Amino acid sequence: MKQMVGYLRMMEHEGLVPVQYKWCYATYADEAESRRPEKSDAIENLSEFTINTWIGKKLHLSTNGKIRCVDCGKLTSKSFNQGSCFNCFSTKACNDLCIMRPETCHHHKGTCREPEWGETNCFKKHTVYFANSSGLKVGITKENPVSNRWVDQGARFAVPLMEVESRREAGIIENYLSGFLPDKTTWQKMVAGDPPDIDLKKEKEKFLRHLEKQSFEMEMKTGKNKEIVWKSDLSKEIVEIQYPILSYPKKIKSYKLEESKPIEDVLVGIKGQYLLFENGVINIRSYGGYQTDFHAL
Rank of each mutant, 00 (worst) to 15 (best):
I43K: 12
E38G: 10
E119V: 08
P37S: 06
G118P: 06
C24P: 01
A93E: 15
C88K: 04
I140P: 06
C112W: 03
Q20R: 12
C105G: 08
N52E: 09
C94R: 15
E116A: 11
E103T: 07
K125H: 09
V128A: 06
C69E: 04
C24V: 02
K57N: 14
N64I: 07
G73D: 06
L46I: 06
S133F: 05
F86V: 11
K57M: 08
F80W: 13
G118A: 12
Y129Q: 02
V19C: 11
N52H: 02
D96L: 02
G139M: 03
S79Y: 01
G56I: 00
W23I: 15
K39T: 14
K142W: 03
N132Y: 04
C98F: 11
K124F: 03
I51D: 08
I140A: 05
K137S: 13
E44K: 12
L59P: 08
T27A: 06
R101W: 09
W23S: 12
E114T: 07
S133L: 05
G83Y: 02
I140D: 06
K137M: 15
S34K: 09
N45E: 13
K57Q: 14
R101C: 05
G118V: 03
E116P: 00
P18M: 03
G56Y: 01
F49H: 10
N95C: 14
K78S: 13
D96S: 15
V19Q: 10
